[in-house]
């Protein structure tokens, strides 16, 4: 008896920063190395969370690690991200988070007050998101072996009734719904690092999107085909993943994509594409055309959802591609992000 050897397609000689940046390199790593060795013969496209069956009960499970510099930034901190990020990964998989477990990797020498502030931030975020923190673990590494602190959270959730999401269910004509303005988190972090010496009144958008997802589920449950929170790699990367997974095209109206002036200004100044910038409190949903108006109204009527907008639609062609159209008739292909967004001068 011989077990067929899993096919490893990952050929990069070493791990680079880009492998963690949520773009093409990340995808190569996950699909070329992790999936064949860890996820067996599953051919399901890789989502943010997995729904598994335990003795007849379906549960959703996910885990995420948080590495951010600086630890605190306008509008949030690593602790808050660690709770909201995992709650959101479950939410966009169609599940309500029930409990989280947390692992801290702490650098020796970390002032207690910094740790305490983050633990408090987590407690507060968990209360706000309506999820309990059920346990965890702590490791301390030598000074210089970690950037002050890393947090990993794993979450378990129960499916929101009536929702069945998959890229395969997406059809041409479905609408692309975005919950609010893009780029706040990524640009806030970029500015908070201080290297670029730019200042702006801007806050991270970190929050639990669960209330919005639940409102959407009440208004258009069977019309929701697919959801994703466009964190690293931004809206462009999430939609490219969708386009690839469902074999359809995505046509965006670029002028409709909401963004704050400061985000736009920073992107113009630094030569960045706002569609590549990370978000921590927004999500994308693909909605069947006949449910789209109800879905949009439901989001707009929910606190924190008033800036929701339909930004485009799914189309037969160009298959596997995201296309942006401007109001004056120009189109461009919107690609996935390759590595981290870097400011450019050219």
């Amino acid at each position: 008896m011989s077990i067929p050897l899993p096919k490893i397609r990952f050929r990069d000689p070493q791990i680079e920063m880009a492998h963690g940046a949520g773009g093409k390199a990340s995808r190569r790593l996950v699909e070329g190395l992790f999936a064949p060795l860890l996820f067996g013969s599953s051919t399901e496209p890789l989502g943010d969370a997995a729904h598994i069956n335990l003795n007849g009960t379906c549960v959703a499970i996910t885990a995420d690690s948080f590495v951010v510099k600086p630890l605190r930034f306008p509008g949030g901190s690593i602790g808050e991200l660690a709770v909201n990020g995992t709650v959101n990964d479950l939410a966009v998989s169609g599940a309500r988070a029930q409990a989280l477990v947390v692992t801290y990797v702490l650098e020796s020498g970390l002032p207690t007050e910094i740790l305490e502030a983050e633990v408090r931030a987590m407690a507060k975020a968990a209360e706000r998101a309506g999820v309990s923190i059920a346990g965890g673990d702590t490791k301390v590494v030598e000074h210089g072996k970690a950037d002050r602190m890393y947090i990993t959270t794993a979450g378990i959730g129960l499916p929101i009734p009536g929702i069945a999401l998959s890229a395969a269910s997406v059809r041409p004509g479905d609408k692309v719904l975005l919950s609010g303005p893009i780029g706040d988190h990524g640009i806030t972090i970029l500015l908070a690092r201080g290297d670029l010496e730019l200042e702006a009144d801007l806050c991270s958008d970190t929050r639990s999107v669960l209330p919005l997802v639940e409102a959407l589920a009440r208004a258009a449950a069977t019309g929701i085909r697919w959801m994703r929170d466009p964190t690293r790699g931004g809206v462009a990367t999430s939609l490219n993943e969708l386009a690839r997974d469902c074999g359809l095209g995505v046509l965006l109206s670029e002028d409709k994509i909401p963004m704050r002036d400061t985000v736009r200004g920073a992107c113009e100044l630094l030569g960045l594409d706002p569609l590549h910038i990370a978000n921590e409190g927004q999500f994308l949903a693909i909605i069947a055309a006949e449910h789209a108006d109800a879905a949009l109204e439901a989001l707009k009527g929910t606190p924190g959802g008033h800036e929701a907008v339909i930004i485009g639609e799914m189309c037969e062609q160009p298959a596997g591609t995201v296309l942006g159209a401007t109001s004056y008739g120009g189109t461009r292909v919107i690609d996935m992000l390759v590595g981290d967004p870097l400011p450019r001068i050219c």
């Binding site: 730019l198 200042e199 400061t262 200004g265 100044l269």
Partner: peptide, 8 residues
């Protein structure tokens, strides 16, 4: 200032 973003 560029759309609310400032720099020296």
């Amino acid at each position: 200032e560029v759309a609310g973003v400032r720099r020296h």
